[in-house]
């Protein structure tokens, strides 16, 4: 799950090297904490949070295919 979010986020930011992801796994749920360069926050969030919602939706779908749950938080 981490790899998927990492791929998506790195493909849409100006500073892929500043993308940091921490993963915590608890039973069947994966908790991801994402941080990006301050300039890239807007890119990752999108208008009305559209982008981050789409990333969450896709991450949840990928997790569901493995019978897991996924939470993604953007730290700013």
């Amino acid at each position: 799950m981490k790899a998927l979010v990492e791929y998506l986020v790195k493909a849409m930011v100006d500073h892929p090297d500043k993308v940091l992801l921490a993963q915590r796994t608890q039973d069947q749920s994966i908790h991801l904490e994402l941080s990006v360069a301050p300039d890239d926050m807007g890119q990752v969030i999108g208008r009305n949070g559209k982008t981050i919602h789409a990333v969450r939706t896709v991450a949840q779908m990928a997790a569901a295919s493995k019978d897991c749950k996924c939470r993604l938080e953007l730290l700013g």
Binding site: L8, A11, M12, K50, T51, H53, A54, V55, T57, V58, M61, A64, S65
Partner: peptide
Amino acid sequence: GLLIGKRGKTLNALQYLVNKIVSR
């Protein structure tokens, strides 16, 4: 229906992300 999601939510998210990445 996994890839479609409720009312196409997941499919639209995939479309939006592919669009964003490729357009960029």
